[in-house]
Amino acid sequence: MIALTDDQLLRYARNILLPEVDVIGQATLLASHVAVIGVGGLGSPVIQYLAAAGVGHLSLVDDDVVEVTNLQRQIIHDTSQIGIAKVASAQAFIRRLNPEVQVSINAEALTSANGAAILQDVDLVVIGTDNFASRYLANTFCQQLQIPLVSGAAIGTSGQVSSFDFARQATPCFECLYPKGQDEQLSCASAGVLGPVVGTIGSIMALEVIKILLHIGQPLFGRLLTWDARVMDWQTFNYGRAKNCPCCTETPL
Score class of each variant (00 low, 15 high):
S203G: 15
A229R: 00
T129G: 05
Q26I: 12
L42Q: 10
F174L: 15
S59H: 01
S59V: 05
G217N: 14
S203L: 11
I201N: 03
G195Y: 01
K243F: 06
A167F: 07
A13I: 14
V61T: 10
M232S: 14
Q169M: 11
A116N: 12
T5H: 02
S112I: 14
R241A: 14
V46P: 06
Q8K: 05
E100Y: 10
S162T: 15
V61H: 08
V68G: 11
L124G: 02
G240N: 13
T251A: 12
R241I: 11
G25Y: 12
A31N: 15
P19L: 10
L42E: 08
M1F: 03
P19N: 13
T226H: 00
S203N: 14
H77W: 04
E175V: 12
R135P: 03
I204H: 04
N15A: 04
G240E: 12
G152Q: 03
G25K: 11
L177R: 00
F166Y: 15
L220A: 11
K211V: 11
G192H: 02
E20P: 11
I76R: 03
A13Y: 07
A117G: 13
A107Q: 13
N15G: 00
T200V: 13
R135C: 01
D130L: 03
I37H: 06
A229D: 00
A116Q: 11
G40Q: 00
S163V: 04
D165Y: 06
V122M: 07
I2L: 10
T79Q: 10
G195M: 01
Q144K: 04
T236E: 12
D7K: 12
A113C: 08
E100S: 15
Q235M: 12
M232R: 09
E184C: 14
R73M: 01
T226K: 09
G156F: 00
Q26T: 10
G195H: 03
A13Q: 14
T140R: 15
V126N: 01
L137R: 06
A116H: 07
V36Y: 05
E67H: 09
L186T: 10
L119D: 09
N114L: 07
F166I: 11
G181Q: 10
H33E: 08
L149K: 07
T5N: 08
A90M: 00
G43P: 08
K243R: 08
A229V: 04
V36I: 14
S151Y: 02
E20V: 12
I147V: 15
I155K: 03
V193D: 00
C176W: 00
G83M: 13
I47H: 03
G240K: 09
A107V: 10
A90Y: 03
S163W: 04
D22M: 06
I147Y: 04
L60D: 03
V161Q: 01
V125W: 02
I47C: 09
Y136G: 10
L253K: 13
A242V: 05
D63F: 11
A154T: 03
N98K: 09
E67G: 05
